[in-house]
Amino acid sequence: MSRPVKQNFIRPTHIEGFPVGPQFTAGHLADTNAGWRTFRPVVNHDTCIYCLRCYLVCPDGTIFKDNGKIAVDYDYCKGCGVCAHECPKNAIEMVKEQL
């Protein structure tokens, strides 16, 4: 997997289950960032020219290549809008999340 996914983390109930000192498995994600979003980026694949600008500039790395198409990991996208703002074709629309 090229990006980590949320793990089912259960807080240890005995001290011996704790990590020895502050060190833990790299890339262990216990929760998502989806709740931060008020707008979600939606890619229009018809106008997208697959220039990869959005992939390059996403601060969270949540845009990825999916068999020649741009895809978004909505578990971790924060909705900053950088991708949409930088897209030369306006192929990404920031759509208000339904709360």
Binding site: V20, G21, F24
Partner: peptide
């Protein structure tokens, strides 16, 4: 085992 290595990468010195 509590070290940074490439077989079993670690994030160390974290905040709690």
């Amino acid at each position: 085992p509590n070290k940074m290595c490439f077989d079993n990468p670690k994030n160390m010195g974290f905040s709690s």
